[in-house]
């Protein structure tokens, strides 16, 4: 079990099926607590921030617990797999990440939901909004990848004096 959870490589499609099952179970579980909607990240994390700012416990619902659970769960999984370490990226990457995060927030506000809300939940509900959003997320990611993913000219490999180890 430990091997399966922390070492073995998971096929992305098998992982997708597991996530699909969890996303399905999320509906009745969330509804049982009086919150009648599926998985969500944007609204619950906005609620979490709202709670931290105002102390209004009304904001703490199933969705907020889900968001906290994702953080805690990812930490446990990464730690157990030996993949956790605090890594500081370079300035340019940090700034790009912050701008990207702000962009995603604005996008989520315009689209009425984040990537999870639109691509996972809304498509599962056969809502036309979800499919339009998903299509443009793929197009946007493709354009951004083409524009930004290229090797740096300066980062050439340095020869080493180390002899070969056969």
């Amino acid at each position: 079990m430990a091997h399966l959870l922390t070492e073995r490589w998971w096929n992305p499609f098998a992982t997708a099926v597991v996530i699909g099952i969890i996303a399905t179970i999320a509906w009745p579980l969330s509804a049982a607590t009086g919150r009648n909607s599926g998985l969500g990240i944007t609204t619950p994390s906005a609620n979490l921030t709202g709670y931290l700012a105002t102390g209004d416990t009304e904001l703490i619902d199933w969705g907020v617990m889900l968001v906290i659970g994702i953080l805690v769960g990812s930490f446990i999984a990464a730690k157990a797999s030996g993949e956790f370490r605090i890594r500081v990226r370079d300035q340019a990457t940090i700034i790009k990440s912050i701008l990207g995060g702000i962009g995603m927030r604005v996008g989520a506000a315009i689209a009425g939901g984040c990537t999870v809300g639109n691509a996972m939940v809304s498509t599962a509900q056969f809502e036309y909004q979800g499919w339009v959003a998903t299509l443009f997320m793929i197009v946007g990611a493709g354009v951004a990848a083409k524009a930004t993913i290229k090797p740096k000219q300066s980062a050439a490999a340095v020869p080493t004096t180390e002899s070969r180890s056969a």
Binding site: R89, A155, A157, V158, T160
Partner: peptide, 25 residues
């Protein structure tokens, strides 16, 4: 001969992108 490519600190997919670039030489 061996060449070393240090990509620590680079986020994915850049280590692979740099590796592809480095191996061509």
């Amino acid at each position: 001969m061996k060449q070393v490519l240090e990509t620590d600190g680079l986020v994915c997919p850049f280590p692979l992108v740099e590796a592809k670039d480095a191996i061509s030489g």
